[in-house]
């Protein structure tokens, strides 16, 4: 399925990709596996192809748009809004315009019973802080794809941990920028790191159980 989707993304075949997802996904478990085992590696490969200049930035953006379309089409079919856990604010890191990773985390957390507030991409640190103060979530999840945006991620983690109103909010980070650098979350001052959306869900559940029983 991965190879099929990858070819569809590279060929700009939105209808084919949508059909593939619609015919293959029947449960929320299918959706989760699709995100982790198909979409994530497909977009990783797209990124590698862009890096090697084998595809253009417009082709990369087209693939991203198709994936966004699939997620927008498929997620509501399995969404459930029974809240069993706390509030979670999910955002791409400041300055970061790659948001598929954050969106996957938001979707999977919501499926797991979290009350998710999804901010998307390109929020400024002060805007994110304002949202945290307004909603006082249990956790904020920040996804950083581009290594050059880590400085802004570091800045916002410092702001969260340095403000009396937000310092107790747990911070989890993830995204491609951390690949090969799994220790970096500590240097950033975050409370935890997850390699993918599934592991992020698991870690947040652990934190929630530890604090709320």
């Amino acid at each position: 399925m991965l190879q099929v989707l990858l070819l569809q993304l590279l060929g700009g075949d939105e209808q084919g990709a949508l059909k593939l997802a619609q015919q293959s996904l029947h449960t929320s478990g299918d959706l989760k596996r699709f995100y982790i085992d198909v979409v994530w590696p497909a977009m990783y490969k797209i990124g590698q192809l862009w890096e090697s200049n084998l595809i253009s930035v417009t082709e990369e953006h087209q693939a991203t748009a198709i994936v966004n379309q699939i997620m927008a089409d498929m997620y509501p079919r399995f969404a459930q809004f029974t809240i069993t856990r706390g509030k979670a604010v999910v955002s791409a890191g400041p300055n970061e315009f790659h948001e598929i990773g954050a969106r996957m985390v938001a979707d999977l957390l919501e499926l797991a019973g979290w009350d998710v507030i999804y901010l998307g991409a390109q929020c400024t640190p002060s805007e994110i802080i304002e949202m945290l103060k307004r909603h006082n979530p249990f956790v904020v999840a920040l996804s950083v794809a581009t290594v050059f945006n880590l400085d802004k991620a570091l800045e916002i983690v410092r702001m969260i941990k340095g403000d009396r109103e937000t310092r107790n909010i747990k911070v989890i980070v993830g995204g491609l920028a951390f690949e090969g650098l799994p220790f970096l979350w500590e240097a950033l001052g975050a409370d935890g790191y997850a390699e993918d959306a599934e592991k992020a869900t698991r870690l947040l559940d652990t934190w929630w159980s530890a604090e709320k029983g």
Binding site: E51, S52, V147, L150, G180, L181
Partner: peptide, 25 residues
């Protein structure tokens, strides 16, 4: 931006991972 992160985090691996990527792309 990379150097600021490097100096703030003292994470030398950041250079070793990122520079070859920069060269390549």
């Amino acid at each position: 931006a990379l150097m600021v992160t490097l100096f703030r985090s003292n994470a030398f691996e950041l250079l070793m991972r990122t520079i070859p990527w920069v060269y390549r792309s």
